[in-house]
Simulated assay, not measured.
Amino acid sequence: MKRSYLSVALLLAVLMLNIIATQYMVHQYFYENYTNTIAAAVFNVILFPAALLIYKKGVKINE
């Protein structure tokens, strides 16, 4: 069950986007910009199923 480099790179990109969105969300919450905070949280929630999809596709391709 070898992983392809493309799926690992995509998962790393999603992880980086999650970290950026979380940092942005905390920053916006600190400055009381609640609309931007909710938008960043929604973006973070959308990225999770994308990561699961990438993970599942990467496992199926390499079996």
Rank of each mutant, 00 (worst) to 15 (best):
V59Y: 07
A21P: 03
S4H: 02
L47V: 09
V45Q: 10
A21T: 13
T35R: 10
Y24P: 03
T22M: 06
P49V: 08
L12T: 15
T22G: 04
Q23S: 13
A39S: 10
Q23M: 13
K2E: 11
A41M: 08
F30L: 12
N18T: 06
K57F: 12
I19P: 01
K56E: 07
I38S: 07
V26R: 11
Y24G: 05
P49G: 09
F48Q: 06
N36F: 08
L17M: 15
L53R: 13
Y29M: 04
V8S: 09
L6M: 09
V45W: 12
K2F: 02
M25I: 00
A13I: 15
V8R: 14
L17I: 13
I19W: 08
V8I: 15
V8L: 14
M1N: 13
A40P: 03
Q23K: 05
I38C: 06
V45A: 15
N36T: 03
S7T: 06
Y55K: 07
Y34P: 00
L6C: 05
A40N: 06
I38Q: 07
Y55Q: 07
A13Y: 09
M25S: 06
M1D: 12
I46Q: 04
I46L: 15
I54E: 03
A9L: 14
M25C: 04
T35W: 11
Y5E: 14
P49L: 07
F48R: 03
L15H: 03
V42R: 01
Q28C: 02
F43C: 10
L53G: 08
A21Y: 04
I54W: 01
S7R: 01
K60N: 12
P49C: 12
I20R: 09
G58Q: 02
Q23E: 05
A41V: 02
N33G: 00
A40R: 02
I20N: 05
Y55M: 08
I54F: 11
V26E: 08
T35G: 12
T35V: 14
V59F: 03
I54K: 03
G58Y: 01
E63I: 03
A9C: 12
M25K: 01
L11N: 06
V26W: 07
L53N: 09
T22A: 11
F48L: 14
A41I: 01
S4P: 02
K2Y: 05
N36Q: 13
K57N: 10
L47M: 15
A50E: 05
Y31M: 00
A13C: 15
M1I: 07
L17E: 11
Y31N: 05
A50Q: 08
